[in-house]
Design a protein around this nucleic acid. Structure first.
Ligand SMILES: Nc1nc2c(ncn2[C@H]2C[C@H](O)[C@@H](COP(=O)(O)OP(=O)(O)OP(=O)(O)O)O2)c(=O)[nH]1
Ligand SMILES: [Mg+2]
Ligand SMILES: [Mg+2]
Length: 566
DNA sequence: GCCGTTTTCGGCCCGACTGTTTTCAGTCG
């Protein structure tokens, strides 16, 4: 059974237990679900003893996971659900509806899913329930609309919007400081909502200003220190307002993750302290809170970069001083995949090069598509030489940046490159990728990639797992073999920065680096604007614990050229 | 149900906003 499915069942067990009013167990099942979800390999491939060692998973849950994998079902779960055949996921997605309300709705009106709920709300049945009201009914009816489209949003689209809101808030005089927090600050690949922290001495004024901003569609909640609005862009935005002296503790709290927050608070308790968003306290006395660094220091923990504040394990690594010095946003010296009007790009060679230079890149590689596919449409082989002369000409004319000659070549369904090999020998960079025929077996797909790696001219494997967030999941690969072949053949794995790719993704980058692989972070930009996406790839590499030395395009041109010579 | 440099039993983060509420429960961050 897939990890996602197992995690979903564990989560539903948590929901069921919560409705029954069972204490603490729901937390345990949620933690276990979280762990299964964040695994970089199928839990199916693990032995029971290994599952047992996973954080938050003990004997009881291990047995349940093993049973699910072996038989495909779980009597404990089916028994629990017998009493209440409810679609929790969709009902709980309604803002303001929690486990207690679900129970109430089911017991009084036999409501099992969103359709039932909408029907009953429309016919004014909810207000008749004891403990409900007309107001609550209206609220629910309104919020059902949003519950039906609870998709997470791509970081690449939310980051510019969050920065726009930040800039708007900074224009307002009483605002002293603004930081984007939450999953955006952690640079998670998908984002549930936008979280923003403001420092001010005038919370009332700031809340009024925030709620009245042009970007806001409607106000969901508005208090003196916290407000939530729905933006016209169809995403929620939470604003937290705090005084200067609590800036660090507030930013720490609002950046999360929740799991890291809870664990840090437990650690504080053990040390006889109390941690909340207002500060770190010993009794009534505040011992830290102005900056995040101060709080980490007081707790005896190394500072954690926001990108690494994801799981309890990240925090434990920080406590053991095992967090590596991850790659910085300024460390990338050049971009090694982009497309121009010669294939399916929107901008010319020159426009791409000039934009890259503005981004302070020392070098770029132009890597238009080749091959016979209609999508992506490639340059025909007879035009390649012409383009290479154009690139040489541009390179000799343009100052302060070097333009490398490259191509992105398709790997065909037999693992052969869709191009005459002799064309490749004069290039600086050759990228190979699977752009068709994803539906093969795990072994076939792995063999295809490895035969491309074994080609003496191929330097980089593009978007190695082929996933597209919200569209297509990663194809199954034997990654251990891929990582080994990458090391053996000096072929680098790509961290593709397109907002919906981010491929390799964070947990796989971590595994690749552990296996000694070297990676390249590039944008795969099809227009000059998208050259900025490099920060998304860097963020993903940071979340994957990658250091500067793990990424080949942190090198100067001279060293890079050596690394590209197989 | 899980977990442990003060524990193998007894804890399990802590605070804001709303309205079901007139002293608190439910939901959410
Ligand atoms: N201490 C504590 N902090 C929490 C809790 N829930 C949320 N937070 C903090 C950490 C979160 O990163 C931050 C923002 O909450 P969100 O619900 O927006 O979560 P986050 O942004 O991490 O993920 P998202 O992409 O929005 O789903 O608030 C909680 O139950 N306890
Ligand atoms: Mg958030
Ligand atoms: Mg939020």
């Amino acid at each position: 059974m897939e990890n996602k499915e197992i995690a979903r069942i564990l989560d539903e067990i948590a929901d069921l237990l919560e409705i029954k009013g069972v204490p603490y167990k729901p937390i345990a099942y949620r933690r276990a679900a979280e762990t299964v979800n964040s695994l970089s390999q199928p839990v199916e491939d693990l032995k029971p003893a290994e599952i047992m060692k996973l954080p938050g998973i003990g004997e009881s849950i291990t047995n349940k996971i093993v049973e699910l994998n072996e038989t495909g079902h779980l009597p404990y779960f089916e028994e629990l659900r017998k009493g209440c055949p409810i679609d929790f996921e969709s009902l709980l997605a309604v803002e303001g509806v929690g486990p207690k309300t679900v129970k109430l709705l089911y017991q009084s009106l036999n409501i099992k899913d969103l359709d039932d709920l909408e029907e009953m709300a429309k016919h004014h049945q909810l207000r008749r329930i004891k403990g409900m009201s007309e107001k609550k009914e209206k609220n629910i009816l309104e919020n059902i609309k949003y519950a039906r489209k609870t998709t997470r949003h791509l970081l690449g689209y939310m980051l510019p919007l969050a920065r726009e809101i930040k800039a708007k808030l900074e224009e307002f005089n009483p605002v002293m400081r603004v930081e984007v927090a939450g999953s955006i600050r952690r640079r998670q690949e998908t984002i549930g909502d936008i979280d923003i922290l403001v420092v001010t001495d005038n919370p009332h004024q700031v809340m009024e200003y925030f709620a009245a901003m042009d970007l806001v569609d409607r106000v969901i909640a508005k208090g003196i220190s916290k407000s939530t609005v729905r933006l016209k862009a169809d995403v929620n935005c939470d604003l937290r307002v705090m005084p200067e002296k609590s800036f660090g503790s507030a930013l720490l709290y609002f950046t999360g993750s929740k799991e890291v927050n809870v664990e840090m608070r437990k650690i504080s308790i053990k040390k006889g302290l109390k941690l909340n968003e207002y500060g770190l306290f010993r009794g009534d006395k505040m011992v830290a809170g102005g900056t995040e660094e101060e709080i980490f220091q007081e707790l005896g923990i190394h500072y954690m970069e926001p990108e690494l504040r994801q799981t309890v394990e990240d925090l434990e690594a920080a406590i053991r001083s095992e967090l590596p010095p991850i790659i910085g946003y300024q460390d990338i010296k050049g971009d090694l995949q982009m497309h121009t009007t010669w294939s399916d790009g929107k901008n010319s060679l020159k426009e791409m090069a000039e934009t890259a230079r503005e981004l302070s890149h020392q070098y770029i590689a132009i890597t238009d598509h080749t091959g016979n596919l209609q999508v992506p449409k490639g340059i025909s082989e007879d035009k390649i030489e012409l383009q290479m002369r154009e690139i040489d000409k541009l390179d000799s004319e343009i100052e302060d940046i070097t333009i490398l000659k490259g191509l992105e070549v398709n790997i065909d369904s037999d693992g052969k490159l869709e191009i005459k090999e002799e064309i490749l020998k004069d290039l600086d960079v050759v990228i190979a990728g699977i752009n068709s025929g994803y539906r093969q077996s795990r072994e076939q797909l792995t063999d295809r990639i490895i035969s491309a790696m074994e080609n003496q001219y191929v330097n980089i494997i593009a978007h190695p797992t082929g996933r597209k967030i919200h569209k297509r999941s990663a194809y199954e690969l034997d990654l251990d073999r891929i990582f080994q072949a990458s090391v053996d053949t000096n072929t680098y794995l790509e961290v593709n920065s397109q907002p919906d790719r981010l491929d390799l993704k964070d947990v796989l980058i971590k595994k690749a680096v552990q296996n000694g692989c070297k990676l390249v972070i590039d944008t795969d930009a099809h227009s000059k604007e998208r050259l900025n996406d490099i920060e998304l790839g860097i963020a993903t590499a940071r979340r994957g614990y990658a250091e500067k030395k793990d990424i080949i395009n942190t090198n100067n041109l001279r060293e890079l050229t050596k690394l590209l010579d197989k």
